[in-house]
């Protein structure tokens, strides 16, 4: 497992551990996500799913083991962090749009200050991605004037404006009214169809079946089971996975 194969590796976790004080929130995480792969992470609340993906772009630190993104170690080195964040986009449960900026400006701020695009270049790129998430007509509005589903699609567009190779989704539909979930999942599925590497923390099992290459089940900070969706849903090996699935699938 070295030489040219290494280039293919998107994200690797090796024996990653994290504690909040005495609380052990990630336990010996070993995981490889290849370029172009779509992975869905599920598990009960407090199982460490969000923490797991937040370690990838160092929104959270970890205490032992190693994470690499495209061969670059995720550590305290500022240059490494910058390079990784350039490659990795993230979408959050609560959208986290900038409330004081228009939709267009939400999408151009980081382009201009991080990537150094001119205003007109940045706006052109922003409009391109806003069209892709099908809300170009909202560009001059403010986040509070949009529905939750629209806001989340803006957040996706804002991330795509930075040309990431990997997208992380942290429960992107959990804060949405049920009738708005579909439009966000459709946008994500389209993105998946275009070959984006994706890690999604979600309880949308329909989405997992439709899009995921692998499904990861976490509990109590550890990865309990990793399987292809068909095996995961039809034939889970672990008792805890079965219990979880019976709870969320009713």
């Amino acid at each position: 497992m070295n030489g040219p194969i290494q280039k293919d590796v998107g994200i690797t976790f090796s024996k990653v551990n994290k504690w909040y004080g005495a609380l052990h929130v990630l336990r010996d995480i070993d995981l490889t996500v290849h370029d172009g792969e779509k992975v869905v992470v599920c598990g009960p609340s407090g199982s460490g799913k969000s923490t797991l993906i937040r370690c990838i772009n160092r929104l959270e630190e970890y205490q032992s083991g190693e994470i690499k993104v495209g061969g670059i170690a995720v550590d305290s080195n500022r240059r490494n962090i910058d390079q990784i964040r350039r490659r990795v986009g993230m979408v959050f449960q609560n959208f986290n749009l900038y409330p004081h900026l228009t939709i267009l400006d939400n999408c151009t701020l980081a382009q201009r200050w991080v990537r150094g695009f001119s205003r007109s270049e940045a706006e052109e790129r922003a409009m391109h991605y806003l069209k892709r998430v099908r809300i170009p007509d909202q560009a001059s509005k403010y986040p509070s004037q949009l529905s939750g589903g629209q806001q989340q699609r803006v957040a996706i567009a804002r991330s795509l404006c930075m040309s990431p190779e990997i997208m992380l989704f942290d429960e992107p539909t959990s804060a949405l009214d049920p009738e708005l979930v579909r439009e966000v999942l459709d946008t994500m599925a389209e993105l998946a169809g275009e070959g984006m590497t994706m890690i999604c923390v979600t309880h949308e099992m329909g989405f997992a079946k439709q899009v995921a290459d692998r499904v990861i089940f976490m509990d109590d900070g550890a990865i309990v089971e990793i399987a292809e969706p068909r095996d995961f849903f039809d034939n889970p090996k672990e008792e805890r996975t079965r219990k979880f699935l019976s709870q969320i699938l009713h």
Partner: peptide, 16 residues
């Protein structure tokens, strides 16, 4: 605090 995570994930420095 959460909005800071959005900025960080976009690569903005904390002064920005």
């Amino acid at each position: 605090k959460e909005i800071q995570n959005a900025s960080a994930s976009l690569g903005l420095r904390s002064w920005q």
